[in-house]
């Protein structure tokens, strides 16, 4: 065959091999988009009014007022930080056995299925929904928030850690096994060194998430800085609310930098 003719005729292979299926998928997606847009009812007049209202709402946040309710802010902040630290520590510790059980290359099938189920349950429900349950069980306050976050941490950490364990280099673990090491020694010598950097990085990231979530959980009565924010909004003290938001942003930023630094350091 003539190479030039072949080169001119050559096209990269399409994502979906069968032409009819390809056009059906594209056409179907387009049709769905058109129909979906058709069902949206947008009240443009209301939206125009809303922009102005939104502007006034935002303007009320300025200037931020740190001073007049500083005691409350400080209290909420300390509560949130306590909640974050304890829930991260408990959640991370509890996530390790779940992660080991959820790694297919370590656990037998029944244990694997059970641990994956635990992870799925923890990840299915949004923190706020779990928090409502725990507030009902333990009453208003940071205890409910702490338990909620610890529970959510288990699902998050265990899933990502289990995936990292499944991705380890098998030969390194095999070499440790070949020395006559016990199962726990295999974990400590063959697996832990391989997953430790990611484990630390994930813990730092989860700390950051837990702090952000602790601000949301206050809205359903689970204590912390979110409670302070909620009260401020209820009392139309937008200056105080702005101060709380700024503090949350500052702390999340600090967490972000810190976790980036930690991850680089442990590589």
């Amino acid at each position: 065959m003539d190479a030039r003719a072949a080169a001119l005729a050559w096209r990269p292979p399409p994502l979906i091999e069968a032409a009819w299926l390809r056009w059906a998928v594209y056409g179907g997606a387009l049709l769905y988009l058109v129909l979906a847009l058709g069902t949206l009812e947008v009240n443009w007049q209301r939206a125009a009014e809303g922009i102005e209202r939104g502007g006034r709402f935002l303007a009320a946040f300025f200037p931020p007022d740190f001073a007049s309710h500083w005691r409350e802010i400080e209290e909420g902040l300390l509560e949130s930080l306590t909640m974050t630290v304890t829930s991260t520590v408990f959640g991370v510790i509890l996530s390790v056995p779940v992660a080991l059980g959820a790694a297919r290359n370590l656990a037998p099938l029944p244990v694997y299925l059970f641990c994956r189920a635990v992870i799925a349950i923890s990840r299915t429900f949004q923190e706020v929904i779990i928090a409502i349950l725990f507030v009902a069980m333990f009453g208003f306050g940071p205890l409910a928030g702490m338990i909620t976050l610890a529970f959510a941490t288990i699902g998050f950490m265990a899933k990502l850690l289990a995936e990292d364990i499944e991705d380890i280099e098998r030969s390194q673990a095999e070499a440790v096994r070949a020395t006559g090491a016990s199962w726990f020694q295999l974990l400590a010598w063959g697996i832990q060194p391989q997953v430790l950097p990611r484990f630390i990085g994930l813990s730092a990231y989860r700390f950051d998430i837990n702090f952000r979530e602790s601000a949301v959980l206050g809205l359903v009565g689970a204590g912390g800085i979110g409670d302070t924010l909620n009260n401020a909004l209820d009392r139309y003290e937008f200056g105080t609310a702005a101060a709380v938001l700024l503090i949350i942003i500052a702390i999340v930023l600090a967490c972000e930098y810190a976790s980036g630094f930690i991850r680089r350091a442990v590589q």
């Binding site: 280099e169 070499a175 070949a178 090491a181």
Partner: peptide, 29 residues
């Protein structure tokens, strides 16, 4: 297994451990 030493293709050292730790891992049994 302690009586059978194994040497691997691509070495199979635990990469994040030190030379000494890798060597001592031969004593894990």
């Amino acid at each position: 297994r302690r009586r059978m030493g194994m040497i691997f293709q691509e070495y199979a050292l635990v990469e994040r451990l030190t030379v000494m730790e890798n060597v001592l891992s031969g004593r894990l049994g």
